[in-house]
Design a protein around this nucleic acid. Structure first.
Lengths: 204, 204
DNA sequence: GCTCTTATTGATCAGGCGATCAATAAGTCG
DNA sequence: CGACTTATTGATCGCCTGATCAATAAGAGC
Protein backbone atom coordinates (compact mmCIF):
# COMPACT_ATOMS: atom_id res chain seq x y z
CA UNK A 1 0.00 0.00 0.00
CA UNK A 2 2.73 2.42 0.93
CA UNK A 3 5.11 0.73 -1.42
CA UNK A 4 5.01 3.51 -3.97
CA UNK A 5 6.90 5.91 -1.76
CA UNK A 6 10.37 4.43 -1.51
CA UNK A 7 10.97 4.88 2.19
CA UNK A 8 13.49 2.11 1.91
CA UNK A 9 16.59 2.18 -0.23
CA UNK A 10 16.19 0.28 -3.47
CA UNK A 11 17.68 -3.23 -3.36
CA UNK A 12 21.12 -3.43 -4.82
CA UNK A 13 21.18 -4.91 -8.31
CA UNK A 14 23.84 -5.71 -10.82
CA UNK A 15 24.44 -2.91 -13.32
CA UNK A 16 23.07 -5.06 -16.10
CA UNK A 17 19.87 -5.79 -14.28
CA UNK A 18 19.41 -2.18 -13.34
CA UNK A 19 20.10 -1.00 -16.84
CA UNK A 20 17.56 -3.45 -18.19
CA UNK A 21 14.97 -2.38 -15.66
CA UNK A 22 15.47 1.27 -16.50
CA UNK A 23 15.11 0.50 -20.18
CA UNK A 24 11.91 -1.44 -19.56
CA UNK A 25 10.40 1.24 -17.40
CA UNK A 26 11.32 3.96 -19.88
CA UNK A 27 9.70 2.03 -22.67
CA UNK A 28 6.52 1.45 -20.71
CA UNK A 29 6.26 5.15 -20.00
CA UNK A 30 6.83 6.02 -23.63
CA UNK A 31 4.11 3.70 -24.85
CA UNK A 32 1.65 4.82 -22.22
CA UNK A 33 2.26 8.55 -22.05
CA UNK A 34 4.49 9.43 -24.96
CA UNK A 35 8.18 9.97 -25.49
CA UNK A 36 8.12 13.37 -23.84
CA UNK A 37 6.97 11.74 -20.62
CA UNK A 38 10.23 9.81 -20.44
CA UNK A 39 11.97 12.09 -17.98
CA UNK A 40 14.66 11.46 -15.45
CA UNK A 41 12.28 11.75 -12.54
CA UNK A 42 9.42 9.83 -14.10
CA UNK A 43 11.65 6.88 -14.87
CA UNK A 44 13.19 6.98 -11.42
CA UNK A 45 9.85 7.12 -9.69
CA UNK A 46 8.39 4.25 -11.64
CA UNK A 47 11.50 2.18 -11.11
CA UNK A 48 11.39 2.88 -7.40
CA UNK A 49 14.81 4.46 -7.46
CA UNK A 50 16.42 7.82 -6.84
CA UNK A 51 16.64 10.15 -9.86
CA UNK A 52 20.39 10.27 -9.47
CA UNK A 53 20.61 6.56 -10.11
CA UNK A 54 18.90 6.87 -13.45
CA UNK A 55 21.25 9.70 -14.29
CA UNK A 56 24.12 7.46 -13.26
CA UNK A 57 23.18 4.77 -15.74
CA UNK A 58 21.96 7.16 -18.41
CA UNK A 59 24.26 10.17 -18.46
CA UNK A 60 22.16 11.87 -21.14
CA UNK A 61 18.42 11.50 -21.12
CA UNK A 62 17.94 12.26 -24.78
CA UNK A 63 20.07 9.25 -25.62
CA UNK A 64 17.80 7.07 -23.52
CA UNK A 65 14.76 8.53 -25.25
CA UNK A 66 16.31 7.83 -28.64
CA UNK A 67 17.04 4.25 -27.61
CA UNK A 68 13.51 3.76 -26.34
CA UNK A 69 12.11 5.04 -29.60
CA UNK A 70 14.35 2.74 -31.60
CA UNK A 71 13.34 -0.26 -29.54
CA UNK A 72 9.64 0.29 -29.91
CA UNK A 73 9.79 0.93 -33.62
CA UNK A 74 12.26 -1.81 -34.41
CA UNK A 75 10.09 -4.36 -32.67
CA UNK A 76 7.13 -3.37 -34.76
CA UNK A 77 9.21 -3.59 -37.89
CA UNK A 78 10.39 -7.05 -36.99
CA UNK A 79 6.86 -8.17 -36.32
CA UNK A 80 5.55 -6.89 -39.62
CA UNK A 81 8.52 -8.22 -41.54
CA UNK A 82 7.93 -11.67 -40.13
CA UNK A 83 4.31 -11.42 -41.09
CA UNK A 84 5.08 -10.59 -44.70
CA UNK A 85 8.02 -12.93 -45.05
CA UNK A 86 6.47 -15.93 -46.73
CA UNK A 87 3.89 -14.10 -48.81
CA UNK A 88 3.77 -13.20 -52.48
CA UNK A 89 4.29 -9.50 -53.20
CA UNK A 90 0.64 -8.55 -53.55
CA UNK A 91 -0.34 -10.47 -50.45
CA UNK A 92 2.61 -9.07 -48.53
CA UNK A 93 1.62 -5.54 -49.45
CA UNK A 94 -1.92 -6.20 -48.33
CA UNK A 95 -0.79 -7.77 -45.08
CA UNK A 96 1.55 -4.91 -44.23
CA UNK A 97 -1.04 -2.25 -44.91
CA UNK A 98 -3.79 -4.07 -43.10
CA UNK A 99 -1.60 -4.68 -40.08
CA UNK A 100 -0.26 -1.16 -39.79
CA UNK A 101 -3.57 0.57 -40.31
CA UNK A 102 -5.64 -2.01 -38.52
CA UNK A 103 -5.90 0.11 -35.41
CA UNK A 104 -4.57 -0.90 -32.00
CA UNK A 105 -1.26 0.53 -33.12
CA UNK A 106 -2.13 4.04 -32.20
CA UNK A 107 0.45 4.04 -29.43
CA UNK A 108 3.30 3.25 -31.80
CA UNK A 109 2.08 5.84 -34.25
CA UNK A 110 1.97 8.40 -31.49
CA UNK A 111 5.57 7.57 -30.72
CA UNK A 112 6.49 8.19 -34.33
CA UNK A 113 4.79 11.55 -34.43
CA UNK A 114 6.36 12.66 -31.22
CA UNK A 115 9.76 11.49 -32.37
CA UNK A 116 9.39 13.59 -35.45
CA UNK A 117 8.63 16.66 -33.42
CA UNK A 118 11.22 16.07 -30.71
CA UNK A 119 13.82 15.15 -33.28
CA UNK A 120 14.11 18.79 -34.14
CA UNK A 121 15.74 19.42 -30.79
CA UNK A 122 17.49 16.14 -30.08
CA UNK A 123 20.18 15.11 -32.50
CA UNK A 124 20.34 11.66 -30.93
CA UNK A 125 16.66 11.13 -31.56
CA UNK A 126 16.77 12.62 -35.04
CA UNK A 127 19.52 10.20 -36.03
CA UNK A 128 17.55 7.27 -34.71
CA UNK A 129 14.44 8.42 -36.56
CA UNK A 130 16.39 8.50 -39.79
CA UNK A 131 17.79 5.05 -39.14
CA UNK A 132 14.40 3.54 -38.43
CA UNK A 133 12.88 5.18 -41.47
CA UNK A 134 15.66 3.68 -43.53
CA UNK A 135 14.88 0.27 -42.14
CA UNK A 136 11.19 0.58 -42.93
CA UNK A 137 11.87 1.85 -46.41
CA UNK A 138 14.19 -1.08 -46.97
CA UNK A 139 11.48 -3.53 -46.00
CA UNK A 140 8.99 -1.94 -48.35
CA UNK A 141 11.52 -1.69 -51.12
CA UNK A 142 12.12 -5.41 -50.83
CA UNK A 143 8.46 -6.17 -51.27
CA UNK A 144 8.17 -3.78 -54.20
CA UNK A 145 11.22 -5.16 -55.95
CA UNK A 146 9.92 -8.66 -55.52
CA UNK A 147 6.67 -7.54 -57.07
CA UNK A 148 8.46 -5.96 -59.98
CA UNK A 149 10.37 -9.18 -60.49
CA UNK A 150 7.19 -11.23 -60.60
CA UNK A 151 5.48 -8.69 -62.81
CA UNK A 152 2.88 -7.86 -60.19
CA UNK A 153 4.12 -4.32 -59.86
CA UNK A 154 5.37 -1.92 -62.45
CA UNK A 155 7.43 0.94 -61.15
CA UNK A 156 10.62 2.64 -62.28
CA UNK A 157 12.30 3.40 -59.00
CA UNK A 158 11.45 0.90 -56.28
CA UNK A 159 13.34 2.91 -53.70
CA UNK A 160 11.38 6.08 -54.37
CA UNK A 161 8.13 4.17 -54.36
CA UNK A 162 9.04 2.61 -51.04
CA UNK A 163 9.62 6.01 -49.47
CA UNK A 164 6.40 7.23 -50.88
CA UNK A 165 4.44 4.29 -49.58
CA UNK A 166 6.02 4.72 -46.17
CA UNK A 167 4.99 8.34 -46.13
CA UNK A 168 1.45 7.46 -47.00
CA UNK A 169 1.27 4.85 -44.28
CA UNK A 170 2.69 7.20 -41.68
CA UNK A 171 0.37 9.99 -42.66
CA UNK A 172 -2.72 7.87 -42.48
CA UNK A 173 -1.64 6.38 -39.21
CA UNK A 174 -1.08 9.79 -37.74
CA UNK A 175 -4.41 10.94 -39.01
CA UNK A 176 -6.05 8.03 -37.29
CA UNK A 177 -4.78 9.41 -33.99
CA UNK A 178 -7.21 12.25 -34.32
CA UNK A 179 -10.02 11.09 -36.51
CA UNK A 180 -11.07 7.72 -37.69
CA UNK A 181 -13.17 6.57 -40.44
CA UNK A 182 -13.51 2.81 -40.15
CA UNK A 183 -10.18 1.05 -40.08
CA UNK A 184 -11.26 -1.34 -42.79
CA UNK A 185 -12.12 1.43 -45.14
CA UNK A 186 -8.81 3.10 -44.46
CA UNK A 187 -6.66 0.18 -45.48
CA UNK A 188 -8.92 -0.54 -48.43
CA UNK A 189 -8.44 2.91 -49.87
CA UNK A 190 -4.73 3.00 -49.15
CA UNK A 191 -4.33 -0.32 -50.89
CA UNK A 192 -5.96 1.10 -53.98
CA UNK A 193 -3.72 4.14 -53.83
CA UNK A 194 -0.67 1.94 -53.45
CA UNK A 195 -1.77 -0.12 -56.41
CA UNK A 196 -2.13 2.99 -58.48
CA UNK A 197 1.31 4.10 -57.52
CA UNK A 198 2.86 0.71 -58.13
CA UNK A 199 1.16 0.24 -61.46
CA UNK A 200 -0.75 -2.85 -60.43
CA UNK A 201 -2.95 -4.27 -63.12
CA UNK A 202 -6.40 -3.79 -61.65
CA UNK A 203 -8.31 -6.97 -60.93
CA UNK A 204 -5.14 -9.05 -61.17
CA UNK B 1 22.94 47.45 -30.71
CA UNK B 2 21.90 47.36 -27.11
CA UNK B 3 18.29 47.53 -28.14
CA UNK B 4 17.60 43.90 -27.36
CA UNK B 5 17.85 44.42 -23.63
CA UNK B 6 14.82 46.52 -22.79
CA UNK B 7 16.39 48.96 -20.36
CA UNK B 8 13.56 51.30 -21.06
CA UNK B 9 9.92 50.59 -20.42
CA UNK B 10 8.03 49.56 -23.52
CA UNK B 11 6.07 52.39 -25.11
CA UNK B 12 2.46 52.41 -24.15
CA UNK B 13 0.20 51.02 -26.87
CA UNK B 14 -3.50 50.53 -27.25
CA UNK B 15 -4.63 47.05 -26.23
CA UNK B 16 -5.54 46.22 -29.81
CA UNK B 17 -2.13 47.17 -31.11
CA UNK B 18 -0.41 45.24 -28.38
CA UNK B 19 -2.56 42.20 -28.93
CA UNK B 20 -1.79 42.30 -32.62
CA UNK B 21 1.91 42.67 -31.98
CA UNK B 22 1.92 39.72 -29.61
CA UNK B 23 0.07 37.62 -32.15
CA UNK B 24 2.55 38.56 -34.86
CA UNK B 25 5.56 37.84 -32.73
CA UNK B 26 4.15 34.53 -31.59
CA UNK B 27 3.53 33.51 -35.14
CA UNK B 28 7.01 34.44 -36.26
CA UNK B 29 8.48 32.37 -33.46
CA UNK B 30 6.30 29.40 -34.36
CA UNK B 31 7.32 29.48 -38.00
CA UNK B 32 10.99 29.92 -37.21
CA UNK B 33 11.47 27.65 -34.21
CA UNK B 34 8.34 25.59 -33.86
CA UNK B 35 5.16 25.78 -31.82
CA UNK B 36 6.89 24.60 -28.69
CA UNK B 37 9.13 27.66 -28.82
CA UNK B 38 6.11 29.90 -28.37
CA UNK B 39 6.55 30.50 -24.67
CA UNK B 40 5.56 33.34 -22.44
CA UNK B 41 9.12 34.53 -22.06
CA UNK B 42 10.16 34.04 -25.67
CA UNK B 43 7.24 36.09 -26.93
CA UNK B 44 7.84 38.78 -24.34
CA UNK B 45 11.52 39.01 -25.15
CA UNK B 46 10.99 39.25 -28.86
CA UNK B 47 8.23 41.81 -28.40
CA UNK B 48 10.46 43.88 -26.14
CA UNK B 49 8.03 43.63 -23.29
CA UNK B 50 7.84 42.17 -19.82
CA UNK B 51 6.60 38.57 -19.57
CA UNK B 52 3.82 39.71 -17.33
CA UNK B 53 2.41 41.84 -20.11
CA UNK B 54 2.10 38.90 -22.43
CA UNK B 55 0.41 36.98 -19.65
CA UNK B 56 -1.89 39.94 -19.17
CA UNK B 57 -3.10 39.81 -22.75
CA UNK B 58 -2.95 36.04 -23.06
CA UNK B 59 -4.13 34.55 -19.79
CA UNK B 60 -3.44 31.00 -21.03
CA UNK B 61 -0.48 30.33 -23.24
CA UNK B 62 -1.86 27.15 -24.74
CA UNK B 63 -4.75 29.15 -26.14
CA UNK B 64 -2.32 31.50 -27.82
CA UNK B 65 -0.41 28.56 -29.24
CA UNK B 66 -3.62 27.08 -30.59
CA UNK B 67 -4.53 30.39 -32.19
CA UNK B 68 -1.09 30.73 -33.76
CA UNK B 69 -1.37 27.26 -35.20
CA UNK B 70 -4.81 27.99 -36.60
CA UNK B 71 -3.63 31.19 -38.21
CA UNK B 72 -0.66 29.65 -39.95
CA UNK B 73 -2.58 26.70 -41.25
CA UNK B 74 -5.68 28.61 -42.26
CA UNK B 75 -3.59 30.99 -44.32
CA UNK B 76 -2.03 28.15 -46.19
CA UNK B 77 -5.42 26.64 -46.81
CA UNK B 78 -6.75 29.89 -48.16
CA UNK B 79 -3.78 30.25 -50.45
CA UNK B 80 -4.11 26.77 -51.86
CA UNK B 81 -7.87 27.06 -52.20
CA UNK B 82 -7.47 30.23 -54.20
CA UNK B 83 -4.97 28.51 -56.39
CA UNK B 84 -7.28 25.63 -57.20
CA UNK B 85 -10.42 27.70 -57.48
CA UNK B 86 -10.74 28.15 -61.21
CA UNK B 87 -9.28 24.84 -62.30
CA UNK B 88 -10.88 21.67 -63.55
CA UNK B 89 -10.79 18.77 -61.08
CA UNK B 90 -7.74 17.01 -62.49
CA UNK B 91 -5.79 20.22 -62.80
CA UNK B 92 -6.87 21.33 -59.34
CA UNK B 93 -5.68 18.06 -57.86
CA UNK B 94 -2.36 18.44 -59.58
CA UNK B 95 -1.98 22.02 -58.49
CA UNK B 96 -2.76 21.25 -54.86
CA UNK B 97 -0.36 18.36 -54.68
CA UNK B 98 2.40 20.17 -56.50
CA UNK B 99 2.05 23.20 -54.28
CA UNK B 100 1.95 21.36 -50.99
CA UNK B 101 4.81 19.03 -51.77
CA UNK B 102 6.80 21.50 -53.78
CA UNK B 103 9.14 22.19 -50.92
CA UNK B 104 9.58 25.57 -49.22
CA UNK B 105 6.64 24.61 -47.05
CA UNK B 106 8.68 22.65 -44.60
CA UNK B 107 7.99 25.19 -41.89
CA UNK B 108 4.24 24.78 -42.12
CA UNK B 109 4.58 21.03 -42.18
CA UNK B 110 6.71 21.17 -39.08
CA UNK B 111 3.97 23.16 -37.40
CA UNK B 112 1.48 20.46 -38.29
CA UNK B 113 3.62 17.69 -36.91
CA UNK B 114 4.31 19.55 -33.71
CA UNK B 115 0.64 20.39 -33.31
CA UNK B 116 -0.17 16.73 -33.58
CA UNK B 117 2.24 15.87 -30.83
CA UNK B 118 1.42 18.80 -28.56
CA UNK B 119 -2.28 18.28 -29.08
CA UNK B 120 -2.09 15.27 -26.84
CA UNK B 121 -1.48 17.58 -23.91
CA UNK B 122 -3.33 20.72 -24.91
CA UNK B 123 -7.04 20.43 -25.42
CA UNK B 124 -7.19 23.89 -26.95
CA UNK B 125 -4.65 22.90 -29.55
CA UNK B 126 -6.22 19.51 -30.18
CA UNK B 127 -9.56 21.13 -30.92
CA UNK B 128 -7.95 23.53 -33.34
CA UNK B 129 -6.11 20.72 -35.07
CA UNK B 130 -9.38 18.90 -35.59
CA UNK B 131 -11.01 22.03 -36.95
CA UNK B 132 -8.22 22.70 -39.42
CA UNK B 133 -8.16 19.12 -40.56
CA UNK B 134 -11.89 19.36 -41.18
CA UNK B 135 -11.34 22.46 -43.30
CA UNK B 136 -8.66 20.80 -45.38
CA UNK B 137 -10.71 17.68 -45.87
CA UNK B 138 -13.61 19.83 -46.99
CA UNK B 139 -11.48 21.50 -49.64
CA UNK B 140 -10.27 18.18 -50.97
CA UNK B 141 -13.75 16.71 -50.85
CA UNK B 142 -14.99 19.58 -52.98
CA UNK B 143 -12.39 18.87 -55.63
CA UNK B 144 -13.10 15.17 -55.57
CA UNK B 145 -16.83 15.62 -55.80
CA UNK B 146 -16.40 17.96 -58.71
CA UNK B 147 -14.26 15.34 -60.37
CA UNK B 148 -16.86 12.68 -59.81
CA UNK B 149 -19.47 14.96 -61.31
CA UNK B 150 -17.42 15.51 -64.44
CA UNK B 151 -16.57 11.85 -64.65
CA UNK B 152 -12.86 12.46 -64.15
CA UNK B 153 -12.85 10.60 -60.86
CA UNK B 154 -14.63 7.47 -59.82
CA UNK B 155 -14.98 6.93 -56.13
CA UNK B 156 -17.78 5.78 -53.85
CA UNK B 157 -17.24 7.95 -50.82
CA UNK B 158 -15.74 11.32 -51.65
CA UNK B 159 -15.46 12.22 -47.98
CA UNK B 160 -13.44 9.13 -47.13
CA UNK B 161 -11.23 9.65 -50.15
CA UNK B 162 -10.63 13.24 -49.12
CA UNK B 163 -9.45 12.18 -45.67
CA UNK B 164 -7.26 9.58 -47.22
CA UNK B 165 -5.70 12.01 -49.61
CA UNK B 166 -5.11 14.47 -46.82
CA UNK B 167 -3.37 11.79 -44.80
CA UNK B 168 -1.13 10.93 -47.69
CA UNK B 169 -0.19 14.54 -48.25
CA UNK B 170 0.56 15.09 -44.59
CA UNK B 171 2.62 11.96 -44.35
CA UNK B 172 4.74 12.78 -47.34
CA UNK B 173 5.19 16.33 -46.21
CA UNK B 174 6.31 15.17 -42.81
CA UNK B 175 8.66 12.70 -44.37
CA UNK B 176 10.22 15.47 -46.38
CA UNK B 177 11.21 17.13 -43.13
CA UNK B 178 13.70 14.38 -42.53
CA UNK B 179 14.61 12.97 -45.88
CA UNK B 180 14.09 14.23 -49.33
CA UNK B 181 14.10 12.60 -52.61
CA UNK B 182 13.61 15.24 -55.26
CA UNK B 183 10.46 17.27 -54.75
CA UNK B 184 9.38 16.75 -58.32
CA UNK B 185 9.53 13.02 -58.01
CA UNK B 186 7.56 13.18 -54.79
CA UNK B 187 4.56 14.95 -56.22
CA UNK B 188 4.70 12.86 -59.36
CA UNK B 189 4.39 9.61 -57.44
CA UNK B 190 1.75 10.96 -55.09
CA UNK B 191 -0.27 12.09 -58.05
CA UNK B 192 -0.20 8.61 -59.45
CA UNK B 193 -1.23 7.19 -56.10
CA UNK B 194 -4.07 9.66 -55.84
CA UNK B 195 -5.21 8.76 -59.31
CA UNK B 196 -5.22 5.12 -58.36
CA UNK B 197 -7.28 5.86 -55.31
CA UNK B 198 -9.69 8.10 -57.16
CA UNK B 199 -10.12 5.70 -60.03
CA UNK B 200 -8.79 8.04 -62.67
CA UNK B 201 -8.72 6.62 -66.16
CA UNK B 202 -5.03 6.50 -66.91
CA UNK B 203 -3.84 8.67 -69.72
CA UNK B 204 -7.07 10.69 -69.73
C1' DG C 1 33.59 -11.16 11.00
C1' DC C 2 36.20 -7.61 8.48
C1' DT C 3 37.37 -5.23 4.46
C1' DC C 4 36.58 -3.21 0.33
C1' DT C 5 34.28 -2.37 -3.90
C1' DT C 6 30.48 -0.01 -5.69
C1' DA C 7 25.41 0.52 -6.18
C1' DT C 8 22.58 3.91 -4.33
C1' DT C 9 21.17 8.24 -2.38
C1' DG C 10 20.23 13.31 -0.69
C1' DA C 11 21.26 17.68 -1.51
C1' DT C 12 21.81 20.98 -4.61
C1' DC C 13 22.68 23.78 -8.81
C1' DA C 14 21.21 26.16 -12.93
C1' DG C 15 17.71 26.78 -15.96
C1' DG C 16 12.99 26.78 -18.00
C1' DC C 17 7.97 27.01 -17.75
C1' DG C 18 3.15 29.48 -16.64
C1' DA C 19 0.90 32.43 -13.64
C1' DT C 20 -0.29 36.16 -10.13
C1' DC C 21 -0.33 40.81 -7.87
C1' DA C 22 0.76 45.00 -6.00
C1' DA C 23 3.33 48.93 -7.54
C1' DT C 24 4.61 52.17 -11.15
C1' DA C 25 4.37 55.51 -14.78
C1' DA C 26 2.52 57.07 -19.09
C1' DG C 27 -0.83 59.28 -21.23
C1' DT C 28 -5.63 61.47 -21.32
C1' DC C 29 -9.16 64.22 -19.90
C1' DG C 30 -11.11 67.89 -17.31
C1' DC D 1 -1.66 71.91 -14.42
C1' DG D 2 -3.75 68.32 -11.69
C1' DA D 3 -6.41 64.06 -11.42
C1' DC D 4 -7.48 59.79 -13.04
C1' DT D 5 -7.42 55.69 -15.92
C1' DT D 6 -4.75 51.90 -17.25
C1' DA D 7 -0.78 49.89 -19.82
C1' DT D 8 3.27 48.12 -18.05
C1' DT D 9 6.49 46.15 -14.86
C1' DG D 10 9.34 43.66 -10.99
C1' DA D 11 9.17 40.35 -7.85
C1' DT D 12 7.82 36.16 -6.73
C1' DC D 13 5.61 31.58 -6.38
C1' DG D 14 5.39 26.69 -7.60
C1' DC D 15 6.54 23.31 -10.51
C1' DC D 16 9.15 21.04 -13.91
C1' DT D 17 13.53 19.65 -16.35
C1' DG D 18 18.67 17.53 -16.59
C1' DA D 19 22.82 17.10 -14.18
C1' DT D 20 26.64 16.71 -10.55
C1' DC D 21 29.00 15.07 -6.23
C1' DA D 22 30.19 13.78 -1.86
C1' DA D 23 28.27 10.65 1.44
C1' DT D 24 26.16 6.22 2.55
C1' DA D 25 25.31 1.36 2.94
C1' DA D 26 24.74 -3.14 0.84
C1' DG D 27 26.82 -7.15 -0.26
C1' DA D 28 30.92 -9.93 -2.11
C1' DG D 29 35.34 -11.87 -1.12
C1' DC D 30 38.83 -13.06 2.04
Amino acid sequence: MSRDRPRTRAPRRSPDERRAQIADVARAIAVADGLSAVTLRAVAKRAGVAPALVAHYEPAMDVLVARVFAGIVADELEEVAGLAAGLAPRAALEAIIATLLGGARADVTAVWVEAWALGRRSEALAAEVRAQMDAWAALLRGVIEAGVATGDFSVDDAGAAAWQLLGMIDGLGAQALVRWGGAGERSELLLRAAEGMLGVRRGG
